Computed example of a mutant assay.
Amino acid sequence: MIRPMQATDAPDVLALLHWMDDAPEREVFAPDARDVTELRGECEDRVCLVATGEDGEIRGYCALAPFRDGLALEGPLGLGDLHLLLARAVERAEGLPIYAFSARDNLAAREALEAAGFTPMHTTDFYAARVAQLARAARVPDGYTTADTLAPGAYRTLYRTSEDGWAGRLEWTDAEIQAHFARDDVRLVLLLRGGQPVGFAELELNAEAARADLTYLAVHPAERGQRLGRALLALAAAEAAAHPEIRDLRARAHDHARAARALYTHAGLTHCRSVVTYLRDDTEGEA
């Protein structure tokens, strides 16, 4: 039976999330919460569905949340057949594009997604290393200086010229950019030549996980070929290492980002996981 999730289902859904956490091959995009109260709060603004067995036990979970130009799918997560659960979620999307994310090795979820009309767009590979190891190479290249702040307009310009795949940031207002970098967990490492910004590395610190995520690393096309990416990576690791609770740095690269993948490998980061991004878009081809 497929039905809307109720508040009393939260402990059982939480148990499914912990079941997913126990094995990397079960990973799908799912709520961050690992506490019943937080989970209930996260589910308030989502369309949440559960699959139940004959005796009423929760055997599956799926949800839809606002994302980009459509919706993000949480799940499908659970034991047994995922197809009906996923079909009900698609019905609730009312024709909006749906993005889904699954570990490359989660064959059950991927089969269900593709059977439901989701198309794989790309694979994102994740890499990790100890910050202390990476920070040993930290130095500012000759002729360059560093900074930790950048005016919104200059940030947007460098962002636009460095990488055309991050279009979402270009829609941010000046106030949104300023609010982002005012967060306690966000750090910017900026590289300048002659006072002009030529590249940056952006970090998000996760003290609970003892990890820093390298969310963006960009070098202006005119400055490429001078190992500035590797310099920024090491400088970002040094910034992370300044926080004693941070032990690891994690970076990511899509399958088409050959330069970034080579950078991380040559710098000593180790591949740790891969996630496939899917899209179901019933609006494609509409006038």
Rank of each mutant, 00 (worst) to 15 (best):
R156K: 11
V275L: 12
A240K: 14
D282H: 04
A23T: 11
C62Q: 08
Q196V: 14
E204K: 02
L217W: 03
V189M: 05
L77K: 05
D21R: 07
T215V: 14
L49V: 08
H254W: 10
L217H: 10
A89P: 08
R187E: 05
P197H: 02
L214R: 07
R68P: 04
L96A: 15
D282Q: 12
A207V: 02
G168H: 12
L170H: 08
P141R: 06
G80Q: 06
H266K: 15
R130H: 10
T265P: 12
L191I: 01
R110H: 07
Y144T: 11
P4K: 01
V90A: 14
L64S: 09
R250F: 02
T270D: 09
A212G: 09
A128K: 04
D35C: 12
A115T: 12
V50I: 09
Y216F: 10
T8E: 15
L107I: 06
A201N: 07
L191E: 07
D55V: 09
T277C: 03
L191R: 01
D185P: 05
E202S: 02
A115N: 10
A100Q: 06
R156E: 12
F181Y: 02
D55M: 11
D55G: 09
E208H: 05
I2R: 00
P24V: 09
T37N: 03
D21E: 13
P31A: 06
L64M: 06
A253T: 06
T52H: 00
A65L: 14
Y155E: 12
G78F: 03
A182K: 00
H180P: 04
R92Q: 14
D125K: 03
G75M: 01
I2L: 11
Y159L: 15
D184I: 00
L188S: 01
V131P: 03
L64R: 04
Y216D: 08
M1R: 07
D142L: 14
M1Y: 07
A209T: 00
G165R: 15
G70V: 00
M1K: 03
A63N: 13
L49G: 04
A154K: 03
A241K: 11
E239C: 14
Y127C: 04
T277A: 07
L113Q: 13
L84P: 10
L17G: 10
L191W: 05
L64N: 05
A238M: 13
P197W: 04
I246H: 14
P221R: 00
A241S: 13
A251G: 13
